[in-house]
């Protein structure tokens, strides 16, 4: 809105915006998963039930996370916030709960400090119980910023590719084609006062046993949000990840946030979230929110839905 300050008030009144469809797709038409499995280009992962019917490909390889992995099936979209801390009221599943001033009463509330609550109020999300109309949101992702870390794990965790080199584990993310690297060469984390903030921070990691890789991240720019519902973090935040290779077909991912400035205790957003192994020839679709297509969408759909008019019949 700051881009058009003179007309902000008018636009605020005018903007009732079309939402995304926030479905967790737990079902799909018969035969689609089988058809997708045969596809060589622009593939999309199956739903959860498909994996339960698949044969196990054996034990986990030693010290190896490489492969293409699916977080979609287990709810990686996380439109309402991290799986363990959704900004939803108990029993709620729809988008009806919005516009509340804070998160009082949500499922499994986060332990905000006073400073954390103050920072939370400054963030105006488009989703969750504090959701505002799109014209009012100040979600940095909506204005073209990368989601950053750990939001890339707490929002739109769909298909990722992990690859390993001599000195790094590299994560390639389908959503907006983000990537990050975790150094494994033994270097320590930097002193955050000696480096510039980064959207994806500074990450180092190591194998704690043959099947468990743990990583720590610091130095994340505090302009990024933790999730899709506007939870803030300070520059002092550190994030701990545990990537446990259960067997050939599964990784369990645990992500814990430690930010004493904004949260009175550590909290875990994902606890052993299962990532399913996709076939090695799985070709990711492009999933990039780009300005041109979005502007077309705004004109064709959102702008029309925003117009005033008679009530729906």
């Amino acid at each position: 809105m700051a881009k058009c300050p003179m007309l902000s008030a008018i636009v605020l009144l005018a903007c009732f915006f079309v939402p995304a469809v926030h479905a967790q797709l737990n079902d799909q038409p018969k035969g689609v998963a089988e058809e997708l499995a045969k596809r060589k280009w622009n593939n999309s992962p199956p739903v959860k039930s498909f994996y339960s019917g698949q044969k196990n490909h054996g034990p986990a390889p030693v010290r190896d996370l490489s492969g293409i992995w699916d977080g979609t099936a287990e709810g990686g979209g996380q439109f309402k916030g991290p799986i363990l801390h959704p900004a939803l009221y108990p029993g709620s599943r729809a988008d009806d709960d919005a516009g509340h001033p804070d998160e009082t009463g949500v499922v499994n509330p986060l332990p905000f400090t006073a400073a954390g609550l103050e920072a939370l109020k400054k963030n105006k999300p488009g989703d969750g119980v504090r959701a505002v109309d799109v014209a009012n949101t100040n979600d940095p992702v909506d204005y073209g910023n990368p989601s950053g870390f750990p939001r890339m794990l707490f929002y739109e965790l769909r298909v990722i590719e992990l690859t390993q080199t001599k000195n790094q584990i590299i994560m390639l993310d389908e959503f907006d084609q983000h990537w990050r690297h975790i150094w494994t060469d033994g270097r320590p984390l930097p002193d955050i006062n000696d480096v510039e903030p980064r959207f994806f921070g500074y990450s180092v990691g190591k194998w704690t046993d043959d099947y468990t890789f743990e990583a720590d991240t610091v130095g994340v720019d505090d302009k990024t949000w933790l999730d899709n519902v506007g939870r803030p973090h300070s520059y002092d935040m550190s994030v701990h990840e545990i990537w446990h290779r259960v067997d050939y077909d599964k990784i369990e991912l645990t992500v814990t946030v430690d930010d004493p400035k904004y949260y009175s205790e550590k909290w875990t957003g994902l606890n052993k979230l299962v990532l399913h192994r996709l076939s090695d020839d799985f070709d990711m679709e492009e999933f990039i929110y780009n300005g041109v297509e979005t502007e077309d969408y705004n004109k064709s759909v959102a702008g029309e839905a925003a117009r005033s008019g008679k009530p729906a019949k």
């Binding site: 939402p19 439109f79 488009g126 949101t137 300005g291 502007e295």
Partner: peptide, 27 residues
Amino acid sequence: MFVGLFAACVPLQAHHGNASFDVSKHP
């Protein structure tokens, strides 16, 4: 003019709530 400015001012993306739609109607 306002419609045009509205289009220019809205954020890029659209991952947000359901305020503009009535989910009880299914024509």
